Simulated scan of single mutants.
Amino acid sequence: MSRFESPSTPAPEQLGVPVEGGELSVLRWPATVPGAPTVVAVHGITANGLAWFEVARRLAGRATLLAPDLRGRGDSRDLGGPYGLARHADDVAALITALGLGPTVVVGHSMGAWVAALTAVRHPGLVRRVVLVDGAVTFPLPEGVSEDDALAAVLGPALARLSMTFPDRRAYREFWQRHPAFAADWSDDIDAFTQRDLVGGEPELRSSCVLAAVEADGAQVLLDREAATAVHRLPCPGELFWAERGLLDEPRGLYDEERLAAMGLDHTHPVPASAVPGTNHYSILWGRAGAGAVVRAVLGPAAAGPAAG
């Protein structure tokens, strides 16, 4: 079994795609159906391309899925800065161009949703549709709340782990198994995704995420005007799915109907926003309901069925 494979999800291929400053590492699950579309899937702020394992499984070869490790993460950790959401959007555009994909579907989770929307705005000829998963909508910081405090509150233990070392892989596994948003759903697939984040050697294993990249990108999620307005300026169709629960499985998630409406994403907005019941910020990506919603948004209503449902 390869280091990208779990017992229930086939292993992707790995590509190196030229971007400014070097190569972007990209995981590829190939289509098995002639004429199938291609989907580019962008992960969250401290994740890696293997986060899309469940979407890949449910696509079941009906589309080619390309999931890059963003600059400063995973096997792209040595691809240096400057970082920032626009830089990631330009990297996604470079990927689409280098592989000759033409206008394609771009899906993004969490920070990746801002990147997906921004890719469409900055490179409209390359994106024909975006699917945004629990991200892309920016709220103003409450009065008296600093950028650093807001970033720490939103990212929680995901940010803290970047400064931690772990004596072995088991310790890292136990760290994630204690995470309230992961514990109830733990699986071999989640284990493979989290283990792929580790670099270095025992007894000083650490996350592949470059702290400077996460800090720069997180600040832009909170404060960058170009990124904040991208969801309102999409030049192509889009759809937003949001989780009912939060990053730590708390009852209130990042979004709800009232808060989205306050930002203009109500029934009059061209990007429809739908809750995925029973999900938190992470399980919306790897659970049956959330991954099924993404697959249906990518492939259309005909995708509903045993492989995608």
Rank of each mutant, 00 (worst) to 15 (best):
A67Y: 02
D90F: 02
G100V: 01
W286T: 03
R62Y: 08
S25W: 13
A291R: 09
A243M: 09
Q14S: 15
W114F: 14
S207Y: 11
R296G: 00
T46S: 09
G49M: 01
L70Y: 09
L50S: 03
A181V: 01
V105Q: 08
A184Y: 12
V130E: 00
R57G: 14
A227G: 10
L247S: 13
T104P: 06
R129M: 02
G305P: 03
A11V: 06
A51K: 05
P306N: 12
L65N: 03
V121A: 06
V127D: 03
L66S: 01
A213Y: 04
V154E: 14
E23V: 15
G300I: 01
G102I: 11
A86H: 08
P167N: 05
M111T: 02
L141F: 11
R122V: 05
E250H: 13
G125F: 06
G218V: 06
G61F: 08
D217C: 02
P306L: 11
A36S: 03
V271H: 01
F166P: 11
R161G: 10
P277Y: 07
A262H: 05
R73Q: 15
P68A: 02
F182I: 04
H267E: 15
G81I: 09
E204M: 13
G100D: 02
I96T: 14
V105C: 08
V294Y: 00
D69P: 08
L79H: 04
R129F: 03
R77M: 12
E257H: 14
G305I: 02
S207A: 03
D197Y: 12
L234G: 00
G290E: 05
H269Y: 05
G135V: 01
A158E: 08
A98T: 01
T194Y: 14
V199T: 15
R170H: 15
L254H: 11
G72W: 11
T46A: 06
P30G: 07
Y282R: 10
L27V: 00
L99I: 04
L70G: 07
S208Y: 06
G200S: 14
P103K: 06
G253C: 03
G135R: 06
F182G: 07
G44T: 05
F175Q: 00
E174L: 10
F193S: 13
G84W: 02
T9V: 15
P203D: 11
A230M: 10
A160V: 14
